[in-house]
């Protein structure tokens, strides 16, 4: 018995000691973290890169944009990620955190656009709405409909009350929770854009910046807006079950489920590849990834991975990422991004 015990103890000690000696030395695969919106694209590139080159397949983690940048900015060294994906631009404060931890040179690469759609089931008629309608239907506080500049709790119950041209149906919108990058972009593009179209709300921007932000950032909590979790597939399923509801999610899910759901025409523009690519569709955002320049010569294949991601066969309009729902940049911008990425031009934020 005592022999076995010693054996087990040795095994335990061995298992515990292996990492301590191995941890800090080197890493032969690329470590990517970041946005769950960019995840499907980043993983596709990673897989093709791993199978098509002599390098190992990069590891891609889905941590969310903010979480990714936080990990990315923790420092320079093999235990920190080399690339972070983001569905929004890096913030000034984050760049400063990065610099404080020694991550001074970061390369920004814009990979394309993603549209955010407001969709409903095909069992119901397609809808035409405006940003103003979206704002009035979903904001927590709206300018008093009876007139005046005062903000009141959102009184609208049906779409018809918001805009007489819309259907007489209860307002029911399924959308992402506040932790999601899609939610951030939706608030920034649709809610802020809609707020600016309402005179009383737009006036706030000049008079009271704080009140203006509060006016579009607060989303209803009285049941009209339902937080449906990060899983967009779930929202699609719920829309099918409830034809009266609308869902807010990324364009690629509309693209994959076009037989079940349809995107609302917003401000006269339908969400499709062309309208998002040409920036006519109002609720579209840019997707990015950031590369740690200090890791370029430490991690094998990092330079080649960036080249693959920005290549025409990946992020071009006929590239394999387009099949996955990425909307590519216009040609001249694409060429510029590619050149900047090849040259590893570090990011400078004004």
């Amino acid at each position: 018995m005592s022999k076995t015990a010693t054996l087990i103890a040795t095994a335990v000690a061995a298992v515990l000691w292996v990492p301590a000696s191995q941890a800090q030395t080197s890493r032969d695969y690329i470590n990517v973290v970041g946005s769950s919106t960019v995840f499907p694209f980043s993983t596709t590139v990673a897989e093709r890169f791993g199978k098509g080159s002599k390098f190992k397949t990069p590891k891609v983690e889905s941590t969310g944009s903010g979480g990714g940048i936080k990990l990315f900015c923790e420092g320079v060294g093999v235990q920190y990620p080399d690339v972070t994906n983001s569905s929004r631009r890096i913030k000034k404060g984050e760049v400063e955190t990065c610099a404080k931890n020694g991550v001074t040179e970061v390369v920004e690469v814009k990979i394309g656009y993603d549209g955010i759609v407001v969709a409903n089931s095909k069992k119901n008629a397609p809808s035409k709405i405006s940003l103003k309608d979206i704002y009035l239907a979903l904001a927590k506080d709206v300018p008093d409909p009876k007139g005046g500049d005062k903000m009141v709790r959102n009184p609208y119950r049906t779409w018809k009350e918001v805009n007489p041209e819309l259907a007489d149906r209860k307002i029911e919108v399924l959308g992402p929770p506040p932790t999601s990058g899609t939610r951030d972009a939706f608030v920034e593009l649709a809610m802020e854009g809609g707020c600016k179209k309402v005179p009383a709300c737009a006036a706030l921007e000049k008079t009271d910046k704080k009140a203006f932000e509060a006016a579009f950032k607060g989303i209803r909590e009285d049941g009209a807006f339902i937080e449906a979790g990060e899983n967009d597939n779930l929202i699609v399923q719920k829309l099918e079950a409830n034809p009266n509801a609308y869902g807010v999610f990324g364009y690629s899910f509309l693209d994959q489920n076009a037989d079940k759901i349809q995107g609302a025409v917003i401000d006269g523009v339908a969400p499709d590849y062309e309208s998002i690519s040409s920036a006519r569709y109002p609720v579209a955002r840019s997707l990015y990834f950031y590369v740690k320049k200090a890791h370029l010569d430490v991690i094998p294949g990092l330079r080649e991975f960036v080249a693959e991601f920005t290549s025409e066969k990946a992020s071009g309009p006929d590239g394999y990422l387009a099949d996955k729902g990425l909307i590519s940049l216009p040609p001249d911008l694409r060429a510029q991004v590619r050149d900047d990425a090849r040259a590893m031009k570090p990011l400078v934020l004004e």
């Binding site: 990673a46 897989e47 891609v60 889905s62």
Partner: peptide
């Protein structure tokens, strides 16, 4: 995480069954 290479040991990056379900469901 998205991991294509099959782990060869306990220090290689790896994922587990329930995580795989989660990633595919998404």
């Amino acid at each position: 995480a998205f991991i294509v290479d099959i782990p060869q040991g306990i220090t290689d990056p790896a994922t587990v069954l329930p995580v795989q379900i989660y990633v595919w469901a998404d």
